[in-house]
Design a protein around this nucleic acid. Structure first.
Length: 878
RNA sequence: GGGAGCUUAGCUCAGCUGGUUCAGAGCACCUGCCUUACAAGCAGGGGGUCACAGGUUCGAACCCUGUAGCUCCCACCA
């Protein structure tokens, strides 16, 4: 078999992914085994894979693959989210490109276009996940707007309405003037920026006096219905009972007094526009003010404004300032720093707007979700997020769930001609309800369904339940199907901290409400992928590499390793392509280790040399301790540490040490054969290493697993059992360290003396070494021609003493240098000894410390003493 | 404005119950090697006042207080 020097990942990726699928390794059905379940955070159906998905799904795949190898029934449910606002915006934009205006279409026509778009592009992101190696059970793929899931949304709406959690109310909402819909508080992001603060004077009615207010939004002056000052502000005490005239529209409005006003800000006088500001709205309610809505839903000035009708709010702002100035109302303009809310979806400035919306009352329903995170039943990883979570849940506000869109689940509320409404699944059902309540007959045409759809998160909060059994919300949890019973609660959820409240908290709420149980046990919160300069990767900055390009360049395995190398849970990930390079290099290293192994010729008659026997023993012990460490990292979700431990086990311990030890010598340009025992042991080790590596690098490990032996189709590394920690004698590792130290010392001498690795040296050992068994290995690794034993140190040799053994290499090294080195070492050891002695002499320490600790300290003391003696002896020899 | 967290090597981060297995890892860097698995490699090396100042302790990267800087979350004074 001819193998290239460099590993080419492409062939393996294409072949094995298909092979895994064909053989059903990703599929999962309930059985007697322990389930391990993960539901994917459904990506936006119209989205394309970005680095965030990449990180997220790599982590999930690592967890799922390891669980599968641990013998669990691993089930990873994929799917997509209909993402109402984002998708609708995309479809609207697309239609506009075609010259079609959304407003010219009926709801049905629009939805037809939207579904077309979904069918055409909706699958892309899932196809991209396959390139990454994601081992999802694709037969279970779900979409939040598919029929069954939409029905479950409606069921839940009706149920919550019946329970009194859902209500309809007029509130100040965040209005997106581009999408023409309300958005939730969580969908508004605040941007700090410089704004102009305009000082405008209002004439006091019946006087020539003026009252100056300050505002950043002068266009809302047209909707002013009061001016408010602080009751204890001496400057305005005389205005009690007075009225002022709103400029331009010349409306007379009262001066009101409220402690809400900050005397220090601006002039201490606040204009009140109840229709366009949350706080003003509250003021308006309190003081029973009129509310004048001067804006149309699309952000242009409304008829109620009287002036500038139809003009965009920002254009109006410019114009009104000019006009105010012309009329002498503008006092001055200041630049101030303030925060302005923007829509996360459409990036336009959010307009507070009074409107009738549907809400979920959150206070009661969210109680178990708070409690069970605080008590640790649902664990957040890292747990630093608990505080934020707690804070948010304690102050949770009602959730505005209606959206003025078409793409989504339509609200199951029905109105009659008088504006009465009922909540019902179908029109027929609605009619029945109306007839019972109003005691008259209705026909379908009398009723109109609510035009709005529900917030996307109102469907995705059901995700961990609905992907298994969408009917359970109607049937009740007692009648849950087999899948749901088996897979719920799921185990781990991997997602970004940004959607902790949007989604995670709400899933926990829904979980307790409908299943009486948590939706998942652990929430692994990933960091944000940033570029080298620490900027968030985003499309608009253009600083995000295309993950598929990276896979093309470094292989899926390489990119996976690159992503995981630097991403402890919850930490931002400063992404750098060179990390993928490191991942690719690692693939290549493994590939070449395999090439070495595959090139061995085996001689069955050959006895196993002692050095190889020891090497195998040593590596197995090393493997055991490394595996224990790796397992521990996994249970604590420290994936980058688990990867690093695996990486070092393979690269350092296996390749750099073990393989060098057992590698056959060359004689006359031909490699010596290896004995069967060593070959078999090495093959077995290689196989174990591939297993431990598989969750991180699925493709190359599967590829090599099949190179190592002929396998049946059922024998795949993806389902191979995770290695066990065997009981082995670990004392060899410690003894071996002596040999390693000797080798390093000799290498050092070579380096210092500029002796080529090719030049063979002689080693003379001057004591009856109990670790004689390492001689063969030392000889090999340090490039020695022989190891001899002698009672006397040869004249020409400088030596080093390690533990009880003395090894001398007959090389001349400057004795002065050596003296210095030894002196330093001596000093260090003496310092160490002193500190140990001091500790043991300390009464408090002896009194308080555990007996084991004192034993340990005593052992340290003895070790240090003998080491000092040895160094002193060596020094006197020089 | 309120809250949480962070500050350890050039970079990204580990560091558990306070104790010379604690000052670490990976990458980057420097030196020498195209040696027969691998230059996508091998061997070796340098590099830190653990943010700063106090305190507690026999002993502090670790505990306490203060200061500075950074990050995130919540609120939104127009």
């Amino acid at each position: 078999m001819e193998l290239n020097k460099t590993y080419d990942p492409k062939a393996a990726e294409n072949h094995w992914y298909k092979w895994w699928m064909e053989n059903g390794f990703f599929r999962s059905v309930p059985d007697g085994r322990e389930p391990y379940t993960v539901v994917i955070p459904p990506p936006n159906v119209t989205g394309v894979l970005h680095m965030g998905h990449m990180l997220n799904n790599t982590i999930q795949d690592v967890l799922v693959r390891r669980a599968r190898m641990l013998g669990k029934n691993a089930c990873w449910v994929p799917g997509t989210d209909h993402a109402s606002i984002a998708t609708e915006a995309k479809v609207v934009a697309l239609l506009r490109e075609k010259g079609i205006d959304k407003r010219s279409l009926s709801r049905e026509e629009f939805l037809k276009y939207a579904w077309e778009w979904k069918e055409k592009y909706g699958g892309i992101i899932l196809e991209q996940l396959k390139k990454l190696g994601a081992s999802c059970d694709w037969d279970r793929t779900r979409f939040t707007m598919e029929e069954e899931l939409s029905e479950s949304v409606v069921d839940v709406f009706i149920d919550l309405y019946k329970k009194g959690y859902i209500y309809r109310g007029t509130r100040m909402v965040n209005w997106d003037v581009a999408a023409l819909t309300a958005v939730s508080d969580e969908e508004v992001f605040m941007k700090e920026g410089m704004s102009k603060l305009f000082y405008v004077k209002y004439q006091i009615e019946g006087s020539n006096e003026f009252l100056t207010i300050a505002t950043t939004r002068p266009e809302t002056i047209l909707g002013d219905t009061a001016v408010c000052v602080h009751p204890e502000d001496p400057r305005y005490a005389h205005l009690k009972g007075k009225r002022v005239v709103v400029p331009l529209v010349n409306r007379s409005v009262p001066v009101i007094f409220d402690e809400y006003v900050d005397k220090e800000f601006g002039t201490g006088a606040l204009k009140v526009t109840p229709a366009h500001d949350k706080n003003d709205y509250e003021l308006g309610k309190k003081h029973k003010l009129e509310s004048i809505d001067v804006l149309n839903p699309n952000g242009t000035m409304s008829n109620a404004a009287q002036l500038y009708i139809g003009l965009d709010r920002f254009a109006c702002r410019k114009q009104i300032v000019i006009d105010l100035e012309a009329k002498g109302h503008l006092v001055k303009v200041e630049e101030i720093k303030n925060n302005v809310g923007y829509s996360e979806r459409t990036n336009v400035v959010i307009e507070p707007r009074l409107s009738m919306q549907w809400y979920v009352a959150m206070k009661e329903i969210s109680k178990p979700a708070l409690e069970n995170v605080v008590n640790g039943k649902v664990q957040l990883i890292p747990d630093k997020f608990i505080n934020t979570y707690k804070y948010w849940m304690e102050g949770v506000h009602d959730w505005c769930i209606s959206r003025q869109l078409w793409w989504g689940q339509r609200i199951p509320a029905w109105y009659d001609k008088d504006g009465n409404f009922v909540v019902a699944k179908t029109a027929e059902e609605a009619i029945k309800q109306f007839q019972t309540v109003h005691r008259k007959s209705y026909i379908v045409n009398d009723l109109k369904q609510d035009e709005d759809v529900v917030d996307t998160w109102f469907s995705s909060w059901l995700w961990p339940i609905s992907v298994f059994d969408p009917k359970v919300f109607a049937n009740g949890k007692e009648k849950a199907n087999a899948d749901l019973k088996y897979y719920y609660p799921t185990n781990d959820l991997v997602t970004a901290p940004e959607i902790l409240f949007f989604w995670v908290a709400r899933m926990i709420i829904a979980g307790y409400e409908y299943m009486g149980d948590k939706p998942f046990s652990n929430v692994y919160l990933t960091g944000i992928v940033r570029d080298k300069q620490g900027r968030k990767m985003s499309k608009s900055l253009g600083n995000s590499p295309d993950p598929l390009d990276l896979i093309e360049k470094y292989g899926a395995d390489g990119v996976r390793v690159g992503m995981l190398l630097c991403s402890p849970a919850g930490n931002d990930l400063p992404f750098d392509e060179s990390l993928c390079e490191q991942g690719r290099n690692f693939s290549n290293k493994i590939w070449n280790a395999f090439r070495l192994l595959s090139g061995f010729t085996v001689d069955k008659n050959l006895a196993q040399p002692d050095s190889a026997k020891i090497a195998v023993e040593w590596f197995n012990a090393k493997f055991n301790s490394a595996l224990a460490e790796i397992n521990d990292h996994y249970t604590k979700f420290r994936l980058s540490d688990a990867l690093m431990a695996t990486y070092k086990l393979i690269w350092d311990d296996f390749c750099s040490w073990y393989l060098e030890m057992i590698k056959p010598d060359f004689v006359d340009g031909k490699a010596n054969p290896v004995d069967q025992k060593t070959f078999d042991a090495t093959t077995l080790i290689f196989e174990k290493l591939m297993k431990v590596l598989h969750p991180f690098m699925p493709f190359i490990t599967e590829e090599l697993y099949h190179h190592l032996a002929e396998r049946k189709t059922t024998d795949a590394i993806i389902v191979a059992p995770w290695p066990e920690i065997s009981k082995a004698d670990n004392s060899i590792v410690e003894k071996f360290n002596i040999a390693i130290e000797v080798v390093m010392n000799i290498r050092n001498i070579r380096n210092q003396r500029n002796i080529s690795p090719k030049e063979k040296l002689e080693l003379v050992v001057t004591s009856a070494a109990s670790e004689k068994m390492f001689d063969g290995i030392i000889q090999k690794l340090a490039g020695l021609s022989s190891v001899a034993y002698s009672k006397e140190k040869p004249e020409s040799a400088i030596g080093f003493i390690i533990k009880s053994n003395e090894y001398f290499v007959p090389i001349h090294v400057d004795p002065e240098e050596e003296k210095k080195r030894l002196a330093k070492e001596l000093e260090y050891n003496k310092g160490f000894l002193a500190s140990v002695q001091k500790k043991l002499a300390n009464e408090k320490f002896v009194a308080n410390a555990k007996p084991e600790l004192i034993e340990m300290e005593k052992k340290k003391q003895a070790d240090a003493e003998s080491k000092i003696k040895a160094i002193e002896a060596q020094l006197s020899n020089l």
